[in-house]
Design a protein around this nucleic acid. Structure first.
Lengths: 140, 140
DNA sequence: CTGCGACTTGAAGCGCGGTTCAAGTCAAGG
DNA sequence: CCTTGACTTGAACCGCGCTTCAAGTCGCAG
């Protein structure tokens, strides 16, 4: 009847994730299958958006467990909100560092300094961030 | 005589890394101790800069092995240069995604939508990037 | 000389994020 | 009905990035 459902192979292909990863995320509560056709998982197309979000967050360094917590977030959870805000701040710093690293790397790719890592331009680009030696996030 | 050398504990403290991590990096060729005082490693202060670079690259998602390759880079290695340039491009995309994620997260921290992840503002912020569904880097 | 304690080593262990495997189940096609 | 083959499961396994451990070695204070 309804042709709107996706099976796991299709979700895998469209999301770029392995089927095993999808089952893994399901077990961890990050996604849910809409139902079953026999034994087979059946997905609502919206799961693709969710997977995109998940992948994005993973790339940003969030753990699967933490993403799980965010995904069930409801407005009345001040703790979670605080953590989100903190994370946003952390992302800000990370973006800054990545930007500097990118610039250094771009330079390195065309620089002729002997050991590349000793190039002053390269080092300067890395060093010009927050003057403190970084508040390392460590384990959340 | 020379007071310029640091011992492992001092490097650990100043860099924010565990001594075990420093030995690990040394084993992997990312850093070198300047010499020994008896059995004990003795570090040149420059190692701190290098560690900062290493930490930065790690945060950016580079593997220890890859950082090792970059650290011994010499100008006459076109393959490596190409990889560096490619990585710089990858970082660019990552920076974009992180920026969007940060904005979404900031919004989420003050948004009143019922399941927070369903907030249209939140989703819009995430979705407005490159229209393609992302070229996933996979394993380098 | 005798602790003491901070270092040394290699090997083993751990948590994370999946992947792979063996064995089983189901739906559809012939 | 019987095969095929894509799915299902739980459990085992993997690579990475360290950390921890056991056992040993050194420098220095007393």
């Amino acid at each position: 009847m309804d042709e709107g459902w996706l099976d796991i192979a299709e979700v895998a292909q469209r999301s770029g994730l392995a089927p095993s990863a999808l089952r893994f995320y399901e077990k961890k509560g990050l996604i849910a299958s809409a139902g079953r056709n026999g034994l087979r998982r059946t997905y609502h197309p919206d799961v693709l958006d969710r997977l995109e979000l998940i992948t994005c967050a993973r790339d940003a360094g969030f753990s699967v467990a933490e993403i799980g917590r965010f995904l069930v977030a409801r407005p009345g959870d001040p703790d979670l909100r605080a953590r989100m805000a903190a994370r946003a701040g952390g992302l800000d710093e990370q973006i800054g560092r990545l930007t500097r690293l990118r610039d250094s790397l771009r330079h390195a790719a065309v620089c002729d300094h002997e050991p590349l890592v000793e190039c002053p331009d390269f080092k300067r680009a890395l060093g010009n961030g927050p003057s403190r030696p970084w508040p390392r996030p460590q384990s959340p």
